[in-house]
Computed example of a mutant assay.
Amino acid sequence: MPTKRQRPSGSWEFIVRRKGVLPKPISFTFDNEAEGDAYCARLEALLDRGIIPAELADEKPAIATIRDALRTYQANVSLVDSDKQVQATLADKVGGVLMRSVCYTWAETWVREMKQVEQLAPSTIRIYVGSLARCFDYLTRLPNSTFVTNPLRLLPKRYATYTDADAAVLRASAPDGDAVEVPTNTERDRRLHETEEAAIRKILAGAKQEGKQRPLALHWRGALELKFELALETAMRMREIYTLTLDQIDMERRTVFLDKTKNGDKRQVPLSSVAIAAIVRYREQVATGARDMAGWNHDGDRLLPWWSGDDSPAALRKITALLSRQYARIFEAAGCGDIRFHDIRHEATCRLFLKTKLSDLQIAKITGHKDPKMLARYANLRGSELADQLW
Rank of each mutant, 00 (worst) to 15 (best):
G206T: 00
A207D: 07
K208C: 10
G211M: 00
G211W: 01
G211L: 05
K212D: 15
R214C: 04
P215L: 07
A217V: 13
A217M: 13
H219E: 15
R221C: 04
G222L: 13
G222T: 12
G222E: 06
A223H: 06
L224D: 07
E225A: 05
L226V: 04
K227D: 11
K227M: 12
F228S: 07
F228L: 08
E229I: 01
E229Q: 01
L230D: 02
L232T: 09
L232I: 07
E233P: 06
E233A: 11
A235V: 01
A235H: 03
A235N: 07
M236P: 06
E240A: 09
E240T: 06
Y242T: 02
Y242M: 10
T243K: 14
L244V: 04
L244H: 06
D247G: 02
I249W: 07
D250E: 10
D250R: 06
D250M: 05
M251C: 08
M251T: 03
E252R: 07
E252C: 11
E252S: 12
R254K: 08
T255L: 00
T255R: 00
F257H: 12
F257Q: 14
D259I: 04
K260H: 08
T261Y: 07
K262W: 07
N263I: 02
N263D: 05
G264E: 00
D265K: 11
K266Y: 02
Q268R: 15
V269A: 00
V269G: 02
P270C: 00
S273K: 14
V274D: 07
I279M: 03
V280P: 05
V280M: 09
V280I: 13
V280H: 11
R281H: 06
R281G: 10
Y282V: 06
R283H: 03
E284K: 10
Q285W: 00
A287Q: 03
T288I: 09
A290I: 13
D292P: 01
M293I: 00
M293G: 07
A294T: 01
A294W: 01
G295L: 12
H298F: 13
H298R: 13
D299H: 14
D299C: 12
G300A: 10
G300L: 12
L303Q: 09
L303A: 00
L304Y: 02
P305L: 06
P305W: 03
W306N: 08
W306E: 08
W307M: 09
W307R: 01
S308C: 05
G309Q: 08
G309L: 03
D310V: 04
D311S: 06
D311F: 15
S312D: 05
L316T: 11
K318T: 10
I319H: 07
I319K: 10
A321E: 15
L322W: 14
L323F: 14
L323N: 03
S324W: 04
S324L: 12
S324V: 13
R325W: 14
R325S: 13
Q326F: 12
Y327M: 04
A328Q: 11
I330A: 08
A333F: 08
A333I: 01
G335W: 07
C336E: 06
G337T: 11
D338G: 05
D338M: 05
R340E: 13
R340F: 06
H342Y: 11
I344P: 12
E347K: 04
E347Y: 03
E347F: 00
C350A: 08
L352S: 06
F353W: 11
L354C: 06
L354E: 09
L354F: 09
